[in-house]
Structures are given as C-alpha cells and as structure tokens.
C-alpha cells in the first residue's frame, strides 16, 4: 500500500531571500503558529487552518465570486469586493472564480518533495553564495516531522538548511533537528526575557522557549549555528532592563550573535486582507536602537540590525 505523503500548508516559497540566513536562500513559510504576537508581520501565517485573503487593489469588480459563494459572504461595495467574515466558512470556492487574483487562499498544501524540488532549482546560487533553504513561518517547529523530512531531503541534495523559529514547541524534536548536520544555521527569537510581559505580547510565556534555547546552546556544535533575533517594539521590549537581561542570558549561554529587528508596519495591511485589525506599534527610536546595540556589543555580542 502506498503511503500518502505528508503535506504542510505553505504560504509562500520566497526565492532570493537574502536576509534570513547566509547567502542567497529560498525561504519556505509554513502556516500555523502557537504564538499570537501582536506585532506579527506575517499575520496571515498565524492560524493553522485555511484562510481567505482579499487583495482589494487587485479586484476588478467583476462580481463572479459572488455567484460562486454558497454562503452569501461576498458583496460589491463601490466596485470592490468585500468579505463578510462572519458568513464565510472558508470553502474557498470564490478563489477559483477570481481570475484577478484578488481572492486567494493563504496557503497551499505541499509535500516535502515538492518543496525540495522547487528550492533545489536555485542550488547554483546557494553554491556560489553559501546560501540554502530557510524554514520559517508561522512556526516551522509546529511541524517537526515534516521539517525533519525536509532537512533529510536537503541534506541528500547537499543543500544547507537554516531554521527560523520562535523556539516554542517540542524541545526534543528541536534538538534533534538542530543537531542534524544538514542544519547550518538557526535563527532563534528572543522577544522578551520577562515571562509575564512575554505572555502579554505573544500569548504564551517564555519558559519553554528559553528552556529549549538553553538546551540547544549547551551543545557546542549547535550553539555555533545560532543567531538570536530580537524583534524590538517601542515601549514593549526595548527598555534597558529587559535588554540587559537578554544580554546576561546570552553571555550565560555563550551565544554570540544577535540581529535586531525593529518593528515595521508592513504587517498591518496584511491583517486587513484576512479581515483582521492589527494593532499598530512603533519601532524603537534610533537612539534606543543605538544604545541596545551598545549594551549587547559591550557584552561581547556581534550585533546586526535589519530594519526596513
């Protein structure tokens, strides 16, 4: 009996990804995340279930989707389609009727083999630049078996894998994946050192995340792969005591690299597309960023800033 291959919902396969690990990479975004970060810039990737996305600027107002919708969830308002999310049961029948690409499914189910075939097309670029595949999300750690399969397939093809994770998930699986020789880099988020504040901003406290990180960092080979990523939101996690606590944690665990990710508003319109409203934050001021950098650098940590 043939086994049905495992699939995962993939929001996008982003080629020429140059800010998520070394070299030229292909980043695969898995849908579904256990966290609910209020500032999330990929809000459409949070929910584990299927979702309908509406790109209003692509709508040509043809109205064919209205006929396709069995639930009467769609209507034309001033020549553009609007979705009544309370009526929508995400059957996605409207997507096929929308030739303009205004209505689309957030993700498509893909097998590891399919993803690898697509990503392997850029092997030449990886070879010349030290690049590879980055597994991101959503939270890739929410699909450990699929990720392990991806890592195995990539390793067979000589393609390095970078993990981009919140760290909130199965610690054993994470350790197993992280120690695989096919994983070359790990981008590990520290959003906030304070468990209560962390819970307030992300919906989960940070104990599991920090425990998992300590465990990875305790392994010399894995530790070398890790770069800490710190999303920075003004007034939330950019205060000096919190940053000092982070620095202390990094020193304690001999973690030597950090990337600062100041908040940006590119996720806001994405929320609207899935019928949600995002809270709008502010990035830390330049002077705060500079002092965060200084605090970390004084702790001997190599710091990089990837802003807008």
């Amino acid at each position: 009996m043939t086994q049905i291959p495992m699939t995962a919902p993939v929001g996008s396969i982003q080629k020429f990804s140059v800010e998520d690990g070394p070299g030229i990479r292909t980043t695969i975004f898995f849908k579904g995340c256990p966290l609910r970060c209020a500032w999330c810039h990929n809000p459409e990737m949070i929910d584990f279930g299927p979702q309908l996305i509406l790109l209003t600027n692509r709508c040509i107002g043809c109205g064919y989707c209205i006929e396709a919708c069995p639930n009467g969830a769609l209507a034309l308002v001033d020549g553009k389609i609007e979705v009544d999310r309370s009526a929508c049961d995400t059957c996605l029948l409207c997507v096929d009727a929308c030739y303009a690409g205004a209505l689309a499914s957030v993700a498509e189910e893909k097998t590891a083999e399919e993803l690898m075939n697509e990503a392997a097309k850029d092997s030449g670029f990886y070879g010349h630049t030290g690049g590879g595949i980055t597994l991101s999300g959503g939270e890739m750690l929410s699909r450990p078996a699929f990720v392990e399969e991806m890592v195995r397939l990539a390793y067979e093809r000589g393609i390095g894998v970078c993990l981009d994770t919140s760290g909130h998930g199965d610690g054993d699986a994470l350790f197993r994946i992280a120690s695989h020789p096919g994983v070359t880099d790990i981008l590990y988020d520290i959003k906030c050192m304070n468990p209560e504040v962390h819970a307030e901003g992300t919906g989960v406290d940070n104990r599991l995340i920090l425990d998992n990180l300590r465990r990875l960092a305790a392994d010399e080979a894995i530790r070398q792969k890790i770069t800490i990523r710190m999303p920075l939101i003004k007034g939330y996690n950019d205060t000096e005591p919190l940053i000092e606590e982070t620095a202390a944690f990094l020193i304690q665990n001999e973690l030597q690299r950090a990337t600062l990710l100041p908040y940006h508003t590119l996720g806001v319109s994405k929320s609207e597309r899935i019928g949600e409203r995002a809270r709008v934050f502010e990035p830390p001021s330049q002077s705060t960023l500079d002092s965060i950098r200084t605090v970390l650098e004084q702790a001997g940590i190599e710091v990089d800033i990837l802003g807008l």
């Binding site: 030229i24 670029f125 010349h128 630049t129």
Partner: peptide, 8 residues
C-alpha cells in the same frame, strides 16, 4: 550576491 548571481 551580485557575484553569485553572475556566476550562476
């Protein structure tokens, strides 16, 4: 990256 693109 520029060099990698050219070479590839």
């Amino acid at each position: 990256i520029v060099e990698g693109v050219i070479k590839t």
